[in-house]
Amino acid sequence: MAETQETISAEIAELRDAYAKAVADGGPRSDHPARDYRPYRSSVLRHPKRPLVTVRDPEAVELSGPVFGVTDVTDLDSDLTRQHSGEPQGERITVTGRVLDRAGRPVRGQLVEIWQANAAGRYAHQRDQHPAPLDPNFTGVGRCLTDDEGRYAFTTIKPGPYPWRNHDNAWRPAHIHFSLFGTAFTQRLITQMYFPGDPLFRYDPIMQSVTDDAARQRMVAEYVHDLSVPEWSMGYRWDIVLDGPAATWIEEGR
């Protein structure tokens, strides 16, 4: 029999309290989830038990990284509402923000990829078979390159929450998956953007795997009324900061 939300919620609370106590006792803060976060059951056999080995080599290849260009995207890729002949169902939104490195420098001309469920919470993926309707006018995949200020922008539909099988009555809060490249391979990031005020946050072991309260908040976009377009779309802003070192020799404007 599937485990209950109560069991998962109790583990979430225990790990969050343990982290808060460790920090209060002078332990390090962490911006990222621990890979062995048991409430997310799929993590149990899929995390290393040994500590990571730290590379301090200034010549490491990972301090450089892949580059992308105008041949890798098309203009329509950033508008997920225009990829089919008809209009998708749901609430039209725009999501925009800047991609920065740890030092606050904009990440220029780099690839941003997104994917998401439709307004009913269904992915256009064969493996998602839960009984919510597919939308023939929505695939839910987009990409763009950041501009000279590190800015990205997408037009899409607000995704719905969806059920999953981590435990009984498990639901994911609405989210958009984001994939980002920095100037170095060390700065690679795949994450999820959430929407403000979602009542499912506290129940979700994936979001709660980020046990630092402030870090968890950084995954939540801000509703910005000035970004809404009259009689057209709701506007959200979400800035992204990439972790990890980069080579200092990478020239400007690459």
Binding site: W115, A124, H125, V141, H177, S179, D212, L242, D243
Partner: peptide
């Protein structure tokens, strides 16, 4: 200077987006 955006799992449904 900003603090890093946390990582989250790629999940099961990247198959029609990333490859």
């Amino acid at each position: 200077m900003g603090l890093p955006t946390p990582s989250q799992t790629v999940g099961p449904f990247y198959g029609y987006a990333l490859p």
